[in-house]
């Protein structure tokens, strides 16, 4: 067993893990942060995307021990402390960018990473960036719309309603 510690959503946490424990297992099973989901076992679906030191990472593809000392942000850390949704989260609700909700945490975390890198992505750039996040419910139309709308809001532009 290895003792690890890291900051998760701004809070210092630590735990004892096996060498084989994945970051996603540490988040879900040790910390009870069940918003990060596991949808596959080959690193394809993106339901487990979190941010590690500001970069998006598939938490099923990283050992917990490898995140020792890191700053991790999960979906639980995205809304304001009073529960107000972030711009991206609010845009997903506004544009019906989620149905069953299972892929949603990973989609939101990927979208946040994209908009950190590119404040004004084209539709094609959004679609290309989401290659690593699978949604089976929405057909992506409203996810893409939501991300484009969130980008505009974050740039300070007025966004037309539906």
């Amino acid at each position: 067993m290895t003792k690890i510690s890291m900051k998760v959503n701004g809070e210092a946490v630590s735990g004892e893990v096996e060498g084989r424990t994945l970051l996603v297992q540490f988040l879900r099973d040790h910390l009870g942060l069940t918003g990060t989901h596991v949808g596959c076992d080959t690193g394809q679906c993106g339901a487990c995307v979190v941010h590690v030191d500001g970069e998006s990472v598939k938490a099923c593809n990283m050992l917990a021990a490898a995140a020792d000392g890191a700053e991790v942000m999960t979906i639980e850390g995205m809304a304001a402390p009073d529960g107000t949704l972030s711009v991206i989260q609010a845009a997903f609700q506004e544009h019906h960018g989620l149905q069953c909700g299972f892929c949603t945490p990973g989609m939101v975390m990927s979208a946040a990473d994209l908009l950190n890198r590119n404040a004004n992505p084209s539709e094609a750039e959004v679609r290309a960036y989401l290659e690593g996040n699978i949604c089976r419910c929405t057909g992506y139309h409203n996810i893409v719309k939501a991300i484009l709308a969130a980008a505009a809001t974050l740039r300070g532009e007025a966004v037309a309603a539906e």
Binding site: R28, M78, Q93, H96
Partner: peptide
Amino acid sequence: IKRREDVRFLTGAGNYTDD
């Protein structure tokens, strides 16, 4: 109407069976 279930799904507060 916007969906009320979205808030829990968007904040990681959904309650799926594996949770």
